[in-house]
């Protein structure tokens, strides 16, 4: 029980840290809203005159893009930066000497900071709906499956973030790989283009990678593009990815832990 209390303290700290940087929150909101305005207009201009393209109406595409842009905000996190700066300064020594697992501590930080992000995105959803476009979920099942898909996507993204962060134990600086992850993953996750519009080979690639479960899967379930067996199959596959990535994080952490000793703090 006390372990759980320890992690909760981390979540609370992350919330407090995030709330200190209010102008950053404002900036992320403005950035997201401007993007929603642009991306939905670009798509509307592209659809011009056509009712349905690749099985999607313009209306549901706009809803998809609005939701996807809000969801994709979760990919942008300061946790990788926190990890690398503590490796650089040696403060990581305090993290690992605590009686809580290091990966767990970082996951709790990510959870706390996501809570604020999610709360903010929920607050601006009405504005996002005005600038882009929103409607109710495609049906009752879609409405029930959407939050499940979101949670699975969050866990996947948190594990990927952790892996990127851990790279700092080898390279000290991880700004490059963080930026690379943020943009490549967001694109392959379907944040700007629903996967069904991807040209052949790119679509195969995006479907083979786990990123699509972070953005595409939930939003596509919401608009009814993915449903029934396909949605459940997606859940099974994302669970499998979560197990694999958790294993990789565990292994990587064991090796990283040995590196810190070499590093000397």
């Amino acid at each position: 029980m006390s372990v759980l209390r320890g992690y909760t303290a981390y979540v609370r700290t992350a919330v407090a840290i995030r709330l200190q940087y209010r102008s950053t929150i404002l900036a992320s909101v403005v950035v997201t809203l401007v993007w929603i305005l642009l991306v939905t207009r670009v798509w509307s201009a592209a659809f011009q005159g056509r009712e349905v393209v690749a099985g999607l109406t313009l209306e549901s595409t706009v809803v998809y893009l609005t939701l996807a842009s809000l969801q994709a905000a979760v990919i942008n996190t300061p946790v990788t930066w926190i990890m690398s700066s503590r490796v650089r300064s040696g403060e990581v020594l305090f993290d690992v000497s605590r009686p809580l697992g290091y990966p767990g501590q970082m996951l709790a930080l990510q959870a706390g900071q996501s809570m604020i992000q999610v709360a903010v995105m929920v607050l601006v959803t009405p504005v996002a709906g005005l600038l882009g476009g929103l409607s109710g979920p495609a049906g009752l099942t879609a409405g029930l499956l959407y939050p499940v898909a979101l949670v699975l996507g969050w866990v996947l993204n948190a594990l990927l973030t952790l892996l990127i962060g851990l790279s700092a134990f080898w390279t000290v600086d991880n700004v490059g790989i963080t930026v690379l992850y943020r943009f490549v993953a967001a694109f392959l996750a379907g944040a700007t283009v629903p996967l069904i519009f991807f040209p052949g080979p790119l679509r195969t690639l995006a479907e083979a990678l786990p990123f699509r479960f972070v953005v595409y899967q939930p939003a596509a379930i919401y608009i009814g593009q993915v449903d029934g067996a396909e949605a459940l199959g997606g859940f099974a596959l994302s669970l499998a990815w979560i197990v694999i990535l958790a294993g990789v994080v565990g292994l990587t952490w064991r090796r990283a832990y040995r590196r810190i000793v070499v590093h000397g703090g």
Binding site: V39, V42, W43, A46, V53, A54, T171, V175, G176, I177, T178, V179, L180, F183, V184, A186, F187, T192, V193, F197, F198, P199, L202
Partner: peptide, 23 residues
């Protein structure tokens, strides 16, 4: 890494245009 990151940031925007125009 830094050069790749800079390229990815701008490249992901163009990838969006490219995928869109493909359809």
């Amino acid at each position: 890494m830094m050069v790749l990151a800079g390229a990815a940031y701008q490249g992901s925007g163009f990838a969006f245009v490219w995928a869109l125009l493909h359809t």
